[in-house]
Amino acid sequence: MKLNKQIYDFFQERLEQLTEDWYNSLDKSDPEGIYATDDPERIANLKDQNFRFHKNLTQLLILEEEAFYEQFEDWITEISSDKEHLNTPIHFIIREFTRTREQYMDLIDEFSRQNDEVNQLRIDRWKDKIVRVIDRVVLQFTEETYKYQRKLLEAQKEMINELSSPVIKLKGGTALLPLVGDIDTARAKFILENTLQQCADLHISHLLIDVSGVVMIDTMVAYQLFQLIDALELIGVKSTLSGIRPEIAQTAVQLGLNFEKVHTVSTLAKAINF
């Protein structure tokens, strides 16, 4: 315990210097992310986060690991959810944790050279603790980054779906639903729910569904269209389907799809005139 307290004090005396050395040696040529900033306020915040990391991490030298992790968890959670770091490429983050680990390894070696009482076993134990903690932080940060990116992608996908399947009110109770691109199961479900809600909100009585921009209609897409048309009928909305291209009509015939019960016209212009 005596040596643990001595090396703890040794690190405490060097906390600010650790942060300054780290920042001064930082590669500031990164094309993006928190490490590339030249904003004084963001730099000060970055240094503060780094300083508190050292202040918390050095507690490992005098605390039991279970107690240490309970205390350190707040810092890990803060950094793992910090948008500045989450918007920084993950390989830049891991690079800095690696450089920080090297700082600790060097300081442990420096301390051991100044203290004859320190044997190799004690050195290895200290280094092993530091490596385990930093690996745990990297793992947790990577997991949080993954979750953040997934949420971001889902939000973007939802926005794209909304923009690519809008119900556009024309005149009176008539509206247009122009569909473009590929339609997979998830998008088809979104179109069904979104269209019904928008038609109800806009008090639509007749919806023109144009599929001239749809790349391909297979059994699943056709089934979803039929579901949409049936659901619209249940809420009092008539439907007209336009824009079925020759190659799509041929595919529909080959697949045995039946459009007999669906009112269809060849072009959107005819649908609007109708």
Rank of each mutant, 00 (worst) to 15 (best):
M1H: 07
L3V: 08
L3T: 08
N4Y: 09
K5P: 03
F11K: 06
E13R: 08
L15E: 02
Q17L: 15
D27R: 05
S29L: 08
G33F: 00
T37S: 13
P40D: 02
E41G: 05
E41Y: 00
K47M: 07
Q49D: 10
Q49C: 11
Q49V: 13
F53I: 09
H54I: 08
H54E: 04
N56S: 08
T58E: 01
T58I: 13
T58Q: 05
T58W: 04
L60H: 02
L63N: 15
L63Q: 14
E64H: 04
E65F: 08
A67F: 01
F68K: 00
E73D: 06
D74Y: 14
I76Y: 01
I76K: 10
I76S: 12
E78C: 05
E78I: 15
S80C: 08
S81A: 04
D82C: 12
K83A: 11
L86E: 03
L86R: 07
F92P: 13
D106W: 03
D109A: 12
E110Q: 14
S112D: 00
D116F: 09
V118M: 01
N119R: 01
N119Y: 02
Q120E: 15
L121H: 09
R122A: 06
I123M: 13
K127R: 14
I130N: 13
V131R: 10
R132E: 15
V133N: 07
D135A: 12
V137R: 02
L139C: 06
F141Q: 09
T142H: 05
Y146E: 13
K147D: 12
Q149F: 15
E154W: 03
A155I: 12
I160A: 11
N161A: 13
E162A: 15
I168S: 02
K169A: 09
K171D: 11
K171N: 11
G173N: 08
T174N: 11
L177K: 06
I183F: 04
T185C: 02
T185S: 12
A186T: 07
R187I: 03
R187G: 02
K189C: 03
I191Q: 01
Q198T: 11
H206V: 13
H206G: 07
D210A: 01
S212R: 06
V214A: 10
T219G: 12
V221N: 01
V221G: 07
V221K: 06
Q224I: 10
Q224W: 01
F226N: 07
A231M: 07
A231P: 10
E233Y: 15
G236R: 12
G236D: 05
S239K: 10
S239E: 01
T240L: 10
T240C: 09
R245F: 10
I248T: 12
Q250R: 12
T251V: 02
Q254E: 11
F259A: 00
H263T: 15
V265H: 00
L268E: 01
K270W: 00
N273W: 09
